[in-house]
Computed example of a mutant assay.
Amino acid sequence: MVAYNTFTDQELFSLLKKADQQAFNEIYDRYWTPLYLHANRMLRDEDAAQDLVQDLFIWLFEKSEDLDINTSLSGFLYTAVRNRVFNAIKRNKLKDNYLIEIAAFADEMIDVADEHIHLKELAAIIEREIDFMPHKMKEVFNLSRKAHLSHKEIAEKLGISEHTVSTQIQRALLRLRKNKELQYAVSVIILNCFH
């Protein structure tokens, strides 16, 4: 069995251009969380950030055969997210000048490679924290955030109520927010964005 998680981004992208579903899955697993965090930091809207990143991955899969990337895959994906954020801001005619200024500033100042390293560290901390969650909470959280199932779908799959699903997800998010290591990592990323 081929271990796709050992492939470089360039190798994965070459396989993706040949419509390799496993290569796409590995790219998705590798970049979904950091790209979501990046979009959410600029949009300050979890649902909009999730939708934006999900749409980006759908587009990537559908257009991969025709894409030629002249930079690193991570650089390409981060640029695509930022462009989509700017388009969402224009499309929704957001009048919050602060948000627009922050998004523009981030576009000019963020060093993608440095940010990618910090976001990978943050994703590793999040994964470790998820591993320490009680079994049911972890299962519900992973189905919500990784499998992207709705509360109703999770409830049906696990034979529990939607209210229980919602409660488990809220508790999982609260647990992540209370983690001091995560708070520190987020602070480092934010500080690195502004100098």
Rank of each mutant, 00 (worst) to 15 (best):
A3Q: 05
L119M: 13
E129W: 02
I189P: 01
I58L: 13
G75L: 03
P134L: 07
F86D: 12
T167P: 02
R175C: 04
S166Q: 12
R91Q: 14
I130R: 13
L173F: 03
L94K: 15
L176C: 04
Q10C: 00
A103M: 12
A104K: 13
Q10P: 01
P134R: 10
Y28M: 04
Y4E: 05
D68S: 13
L191T: 09
F76M: 05
L174D: 14
A106T: 14
Q21F: 14
I189L: 11
D29M: 01
F76E: 03
A49F: 07
E156P: 02
K136A: 11
L12Q: 03
I189M: 05
S144A: 08
E65R: 13
L174K: 15
L149Q: 07
K146P: 01
A23C: 02
R177P: 00
R84H: 05
Q183Y: 01
V188M: 11
A88V: 02
D66R: 12
S64Y: 03
V85C: 07
H118Q: 13
V85G: 06
A104Y: 14
V165P: 11
D114T: 11
D55K: 14
K157H: 07
L174Q: 12
H148E: 04
R145M: 04
R177L: 01
Y31A: 02
G159T: 03
H135Y: 10
M137Y: 03
Y78N: 11
C193P: 00
Q183H: 01
A48N: 05
I160D: 06
A49T: 08
A124V: 00
A19M: 03
D111I: 09
T6F: 02
I102K: 15
E46F: 08
Q50D: 14
A155E: 08
A104Q: 14
F13G: 02
L12R: 03
S74C: 08
D131T: 06
S161Q: 06
A155N: 09
S166M: 08
K18H: 09
F132P: 00
A49M: 09
C193V: 00
I100Y: 14
A23S: 02
K152M: 03
T6L: 09
L16I: 05
D55E: 12
N92K: 14
I117H: 01
R44L: 08
I125R: 11
Y184E: 08
S166N: 10
Q170F: 03
R30N: 09
L35C: 14
H135L: 10
I169G: 04
E153Q: 15
E108K: 13
T79E: 11
L43G: 08
A113C: 00
A172V: 04
L73A: 11
D45S: 13
A48K: 15
R177H: 07
N40Y: 10
N142D: 03
E115S: 12
I125V: 13
I190Y: 07
R91M: 12
Q10G: 01
D114K: 10
R30Y: 10
M1R: 03
K138D: 06
T79D: 10
V2R: 10
I126V: 15
A80R: 15
A147Y: 06
D114E: 11
Q168Y: 15
N83L: 07
I102Y: 10
L122Q: 10
P134H: 10
E181P: 01
I125C: 04
F86S: 14
D55Y: 09
H148F: 07
D55N: 14
I169D: 05
L43H: 09
